[in-house]
Lab assay of single mutants.
Amino acid sequence: MATGGRRGAAAAPLLVAVAALLLGAAGHLYPGEVCPGMDIRNNLTRLHELENCSVIEGHLQILLMFKTRPEDFRDLSFPKLIMITDYLLLFRVYGLESLKDLFPNLTVIRGSRLFFNYALVIFEMVHLKELGLYNLMNITRGSVRIEKNNELCYLATIDWSRILDSVEDNYIVLNKDDNEECGDICPGTAKGKTNCPATVINGQFVERCWTHSHCQKVCPTICKSHGCTAEGLCCHSECLGNCSQPDDPTKCVACRNFYLDGRCVETCPPPYYHFQDWRCVNFSFCQDLHHKCKNSRRQGCHQYVIHNNKCIPECPSGYTMNSSNLLCTPCLGPCPKVCHLLEGEKTIDSVTSAQELRGCTVINGSLIINIRGGNNLAAELEANLGLIEEISGYLKIRRSYALVSLSFFRKLRLIRGETLEIGNYSFYALDNQNLRQLWDWSKHNLTITQGKLFFHYNPKLCLSEIHKMEEVSGTKGRQERNDIALKTNGDQASCENELLKFSYIRTSFDKI
């Protein structure tokens, strides 16, 4: 039985969820670079991206490699990797027998973001014989899940209580170790020597080791999670996991709180800001991140802002960003909400898709409305799209047979046209069989910064309504002859009103 693990408890099935942008060198404390989270699957090609990484700022997932063999891993080693800020997950990587050479110096898994409450997941690794993470000293947050690894031993010899604050939620089941077939031998045991430290858990006094050649490092209890030197002297209180010299914040392997210019500090002093819960960055760093993602459509890219001495992905609820200094300031009234469309555009074809934009005031991208039916549609669209004030790209209304009016965009005031449909149009209306009105132009103002209007096959939309939009939106004169079809717009509506004058002759039985 794995020490510190839980057996036999019912657990939810383990679901495996399925960018080499360097964020800056980590400095003297770390020998390499800070790398983003990685999802490495199918083959070993991307694994080489770990070569210079000291910190993975995010998670590391290595999974679904069915053609790899043990010899493929023999020359692979990433000794610079010290810390993973989120979680480490391995799933069905064939041929991998140990992690001792792959990650010989991995010391800390912070667990800032977890995989279903777990910071370390080893699942269905069919050839893994031992973990071998002999320098792993601290899992700051989260638990361990090690399950269905039929060859995995050296679990009962690990004292997880020396690595985690609590072992109650560890789930370590259905491994070879369960069948008591392992016969784990710690260093020196074969020669009758006791080389590794022994600890007591559940009444068992057991030597602690990761492999037959690597003991588990056990520091004096007084050192807590700070770690200790090879001689057993406690590291500085700002260290986490390990250090090369005692009581020196510049000799830590990793930091308990924050890293700044080669030393570990309790908090980031001005003019620095907390970033990702582990390091200090200056304003320029946060500003660069903001600008890199301002026009990016890459998933996970955030326009970072500053709030409460932190550089964070977005302002919290009730705050909006001051564009001059990136500071989050309290909103006066309802907060603006910028919604970034991942692929640059979004099609609204149902109430469900409209709900995804609920509360958005600025759309960074283009909207395509293609709704053919739905219950209580006008009210639903207004509830979900009615706060949109600005669209950076274009607005396209296409084959939306259920629409009679666009009044559900009740606050839309600006279409920038930074991206144009077919390279020309910022407003595009095609084949809307029941569209009769755009907006009530006596109450609604709309500016279209650039781009043209396109109207074709809107049989109940009168040309007068379209011409009014040209005047109000500032697009009059931009359109070419064929942009607004004269014969297919309003051709099934009563669009022309003329005053009919009647004269009559009164007659009676005795007068003409």
Rank of each mutant, 00 (worst) to 15 (best):
Q276K: 09
F115V: 15
D101P: 12
Y154T: 11
I201S: 04
I158P: 05
D261G: 03
C209D: 01
V108S: 10
P36V: 05
Y171W: 11
D75A: 05
E130H: 06
P31R: 02
S323R: 14
I139A: 02
D184L: 08
L152C: 13
P330W: 05
R298T: 14
D288A: 09
S237V: 08
F283N: 10
R74G: 02
E266W: 14
M137Y: 04
D75V: 13
V265C: 11
L164W: 02
L155Q: 07
L90M: 13
N309C: 04
I185R: 14
E238W: 04
K191N: 15
D261C: 02
M321S: 13
E314S: 05
V144M: 10
C255A: 00
G241Y: 04
Y272L: 06
S166V: 07
N43P: 02
G318H: 05
M321W: 14
G241Q: 05
R110K: 13
R162K: 12
S225C: 13
Y272R: 03
W210R: 05
R263H: 02
L44P: 07
N257Q: 07
K129G: 10
G227L: 09
S323N: 02
G227W: 11
T85L: 08
K191A: 14
L63A: 13
L90R: 00
M38H: 11
S98C: 03
T157S: 06
D72M: 14
I146R: 01
N43R: 09
Q276M: 13
E57H: 12
K191T: 05
C280R: 00
E57Q: 07
P336I: 08
W160F: 12
G227S: 14
T45I: 07
K224V: 13
H226P: 08
D288L: 12
M38Y: 11
C228W: 01
R46I: 08
D288Q: 14
P79L: 03
P271G: 13
R110I: 11
P79E: 12
E266V: 11
L128P: 00
V144S: 06
H236W: 02
N135V: 01
K193N: 08
G232W: 08
I139Y: 01
G203F: 13
R113L: 12
Q204N: 14
P70Q: 13
T45P: 15
W160H: 01
L96I: 12
N150Q: 11
Q245G: 14
N43S: 09
L60A: 01
R162A: 14
R263S: 02
C239L: 00
S244R: 13
H212F: 12
H236T: 03
F258L: 11
M83A: 02
F115Y: 04
R298C: 09
H307G: 05
D169K: 12
N105L: 02
R263F: 02
R145T: 03
E238M: 09
I62R: 00
F285H: 09
A119I: 00
L128H: 00
L81M: 05
E49C: 07
H307E: 09
K193C: 11
C335V: 04
D288E: 07
P313R: 13
Y94A: 05
F283G: 07
V108T: 14
F78Y: 12
L50I: 09
C264V: 00
F275A: 04
P197R: 15
G318P: 06
I122Y: 00
N105E: 04
E97I: 11
G183E: 14
N175H: 14
P187G: 11
F116H: 14
